[in-house]
Amino acid sequence: MTTTGRTFTPDFLTELFRNPLDPGYADAAERKARGEGPGPSERTAYRSLMAVTLVALGVLLVMAYRQTMADEPARTRAHNTLVGQVQDRRKSNTELQDRADSLRSEVATLRAKQLGGATVARLRDLEAATGLAPVRGSGAKVKLADGPTTINPVTGERRTEAQVKDTDLQLAANALWSAGAEAIAINGERLTATSTIRQAGEAILVDFRPVTSPYQIVALGPDDLSDDFRNGYAGRFFQELVKRYGMSFDTADVDNVTLDAATELKLRVTKPIVPATPSSSPSEGGR
């Protein structure tokens, strides 16, 4: 009767602890002890090759550094040129805007001289309602600000949940209109019937003008406009954002505040007002 027993072989970890040195190192040590390693000439050639390689790398690094330093003044000049062009355009736009405001005021003065008092008053009311004229009164001020920015520890990306979005400003403006606001401005930019609030990367544009946090939304309207906004859907939504993401939200009453006129109002459709002519009834003897 023969018995077959189990055969145990050492596992990898056990063998690693017993022989930590790679067999190739042991073979190389044995060949060196027997004098079978590379000779002096081979070692000298190897050292020479390494020295030449290191010198070549050093020369390439020096050439790359000198080229980078030589290109730096050109990049600086290009950057300064672009900055100067932006500043010149900005100055030109400011001058043109001032001239447009002056011409608008001159037109309003001439129009007041040509039209009667009742007609001028009606035009001023229409301009105030459409945003073409500055308005003054009481209402509410809504303040929205970004919360703390966090970074994803895994990907390193910035988390934008705590940043105010263009949809948040749209929601606030629509809620104020619904609550009875007669005029609204976001960071001084007056809203009109054709205004747009859009996101461009991390920036928010109101009528193609950038606005930044904190966002001040001032609305003129009823005395209880601030309370209605805070207790409405938009106010509860922003309060939830404060609890969840740490954003800043606040409302307050404002008195005797002035909202400037809109800088640009692009009319899309206009219709002339044609006075109604009385209809003449046919005479009895006519056909």
Rank of each mutant, 00 (worst) to 15 (best):
G35N: 03
S281A: 06
R99S: 02
F229G: 00
R287H: 14
G188P: 01
G156L: 06
L110S: 10
R198H: 06
M50K: 11
I217K: 03
G117R: 14
R77L: 10
S226P: 10
L16Q: 05
R43L: 09
Q85P: 04
E161A: 14
A193E: 01
F237G: 01
R158W: 14
K143Q: 02
G188D: 03
G285V: 13
G246R: 04
A45C: 05
A128W: 15
I151N: 03
V164Y: 10
K243Y: 13
Q87E: 14
L220D: 13
P222G: 05
A74V: 14
A262Q: 06
R47T: 07
G137P: 08
V55N: 00
T9V: 08
M1Y: 15
T149S: 03
G58N: 05
P153N: 08
L16Y: 01
A203W: 08
R158P: 14
T94A: 03
P73G: 02
A172C: 10
G232D: 06
A118T: 14
D227V: 11
N256C: 07
R190D: 00
D27I: 04
G286I: 13
A219R: 05
R236S: 06
R47M: 07
E182H: 11
A200N: 08
L171Y: 15
T277R: 06
R47V: 12
V86Q: 04
D228G: 12
Q85L: 07
G221T: 13
T119R: 06
K113I: 09
S178E: 11
H79F: 13
L60C: 07
D228E: 12
A45G: 05
Y215D: 05
A28I: 02
Q97C: 09
L132C: 07
L144M: 00
T277H: 10
A129E: 12
L241F: 12
R268W: 02
M69D: 12
Q114K: 14
S195R: 00
G24K: 08
A185Q: 02
E161Q: 14
K143M: 03
R230W: 14
G285K: 12
P214Q: 13
P222V: 03
L54C: 04
T44N: 01
F237T: 12
K243H: 10
P275G: 00
T160G: 02
I186W: 12
N93W: 10
N152T: 08
A100T: 10
P222F: 15
W177G: 15
V52R: 06
S105P: 05
A193K: 00
R104C: 04
V254M: 13
E157D: 13
L220A: 07
S280W: 14
D227H: 13
L123H: 10
E42L: 08
P38I: 15
T155C: 12
P38T: 09
R136V: 03
N93F: 13
Y215N: 03
T263N: 01
A219I: 07
M63F: 12
D101K: 01
L191A: 01
K271W: 03
A200R: 11
K266S: 03
E36N: 11
D224Y: 09
D11S: 07
A133S: 08
N231R: 06
A181I: 12
V257L: 01
G188R: 00
K266C: 00
S280C: 06
A162M: 15
D101F: 00
S226R: 14
G137R: 02
Y215C: 04
